[in-house]
Simulated scan of single mutants.
Amino acid sequence: MNGSGVRRVLAALSLLLVLPAGLAACAGGPPTVAPTGVDELTIPTPMPDPSDFVDPDADESAANPWFPLEPGRVWTYRRHELQDTYVERVTVTDRTRVVDGVTTRVVSDELVDTAQRVVSSHERYYARDNLGNVWFFGIAGDWEAGVAGAEAGLAMPAHPRLGDGFVVDAGPGTAEDRAEVLALDAKRDVPAGSFDDLLEVEQTTPHQTGLVRRAYYAAGVGLVFQETVAGGTELVELVASG
């Protein structure tokens, strides 16, 4: 990004599996893929420039299709954890919050048990930059970018590619998840329907060795399925969205 803001440097993790341009050319491989937002970003970003981010209330015609942030959007999920089943509701609110100088959109997340009791609720802060990348700025009461060394991570690149790797959140000691794009053509059947051409992302964290989650996103919808494939039993399925 600009100036002292999010510097335009190649800062993807070692998870990035794309060959350097010169090596690909010498090996007679396919043409080099044009740079995307992931290539040109410092992730996490230590000094976000507010001018690099869109107004949360601006036109969403250029929104990230994998991670919609239009106020009023609601997703209902069925979440299974061990022997328990919950209903999870994720809502893009009409509220905003300034975090580390950037005006972010507040997204609420509420977990309800079978007796209709609220088990937990959280508020997360996201912001979309001018290139369409969605950044994760924190969770209320947990960590916030710009506080105690925490920095904004990348929730979703604008144009994810197979092998792209990035830091999702950067709250030292509490939230340091990493993500890698595994597929762009995954398929899943969930209560909300059958989905093709899903973006499949694997997520790990240094704070829970052996924990591996895989999340599946549909363009124009967002998250439709998530499962813990190692180190846990969590399963999340989309029931309805709108």
Rank of each mutant, 00 (worst) to 15 (best):
H122W: 12
D129Q: 09
Y125C: 02
D84Y: 10
D94Y: 11
V147L: 12
A150E: 10
A152E: 03
V168L: 01
D94C: 09
D169W: 01
E110I: 14
T91V: 13
T104M: 03
V98W: 00
W135T: 02
A115Q: 15
S108A: 09
A170L: 02
E123M: 04
V168E: 02
A152C: 08
V134I: 09
D142E: 15
V168S: 01
V168W: 00
F136E: 00
A150G: 14
V87N: 06
W135R: 02
V107M: 06
H159G: 14
E144Y: 09
E110S: 13
E151K: 13
A115D: 15
F137K: 00
W135H: 06
T85C: 14
S120P: 13
V87A: 12
G138M: 04
G138S: 05
A158T: 09
G101Y: 00
L111P: 09
R97I: 03
E110P: 02
G101A: 00
E151F: 10
V87M: 13
H122P: 02
T91A: 07
V112Q: 04
L162Y: 13
E88I: 14
G101F: 00
S120A: 13
R161Y: 08
T91P: 02
R95L: 07
A145W: 03
D164T: 07
R161T: 04
S108R: 07
Y86D: 13
D94V: 11
A170G: 10
D109K: 11
R128G: 13
A140L: 07
R124K: 13
D169Q: 05
W143E: 08
W143V: 15
A150Y: 05
A150P: 15
R95A: 10
T85E: 15
V168F: 02
D164C: 10
R97D: 05
T91R: 09
G138C: 07
R89Q: 10
R89S: 05
E151Q: 15
F166Q: 01
Y86I: 11
G132E: 04
H122E: 15
I139C: 05
V99Y: 01
G146K: 00
G141R: 08
R95H: 06
V106C: 04
D142K: 13
A127L: 01
G138P: 09
R128M: 15
L131R: 15
V119Y: 03
N133D: 15
D129R: 07
E144R: 05
S120I: 05
P157S: 07
G146S: 01
R128P: 15
V134M: 07
A155T: 03
H122K: 14
V147Q: 08
V98M: 02
D94E: 11
R105K: 10
G141W: 06
T103C: 05
F136H: 02
T91I: 03
A148P: 15
T93G: 06
Y126S: 00
R117L: 08
L162H: 13
A152K: 02
T93I: 02
